[in-house]
Amino acid sequence: MLEAKLSEAALLKRLLDAVKELVSDANFECNEEGIQLQAMDNSHVALVSVKLYASGFKRYRCDRPLPLGVNLGSLTKVLKCAKDDDICTLKAGDDADILSLTYEAKSAYADRIAEYEMKLMDIDADQLGIPDTDYDASVTMPSSEFLRIVRDLSLLGESVRIEVSKEGIRFVSDGEAANGNILIKQNAEASGKKKGSIEMNSAVTLTFSLKYLVNFSKSSSLSKKVQLMMSNDVPLLVSYAFNQGHIRYYLAPKIGD
């Protein structure tokens, strides 16, 4: 059985927000290390991978590996019934056909305990073997900055070309009616406070669909920083780390011309 108690429902709400438009159904793989979700979107262009460490929960117990097949739309609805700061407990039995969620209010004036149950399903998902990659470039930047850039450029065109060079990281969008490019220079330590970093072994140029990057940026609510890992001709890794775990996205590049 699984019993996992989170100190704030907001974490799950934000995670669902950051996943549900890419994937409609997914297995939450629970084991003693924590809860993991890995799924590709229908078009096999993007993959999302979420990990919640057992240590990130107030209480965590999972006796044996348990895949919970979740319809993310249904879970989103059930989570809407929780207040952001409610304590949230997930429970499932070994038959994994029902997920129960309990929300406990933290407010001092009343003890509210709400209980919900949702049906689980059998999901036969592809398992992707993600190879360990030594990336040629690694860029860390404020997640709000990344959100702003991809949202702005998505107004102009469908794609963005990302160029990492000695100069810094440049985002270029060539739309039919307008184009734009944004350069973030290596030296962003003006205030003495390090806002980001660019590490590069060799120059990288890759082109991606902006609609996916805009979607990934929903994770900005989970982490103040985002890390972009790139090598020529391999999928981009977009990684957001937070106290209780991480969410990572892989995105296949556009190729040829």
Binding site: L47, G129, I130, P235, Y250, A252, P253, K254, I255, G256
Partner: peptide, 14 residues
């Protein structure tokens, strides 16, 4: 324009 590749061609699917 450039064509969209798929993850399957980079990652092994089983």
């Amino acid at each position: 324009g450039a064509g969209q590749s798929r993850l399957d061609s980079f990652f092994g699917v089983s």
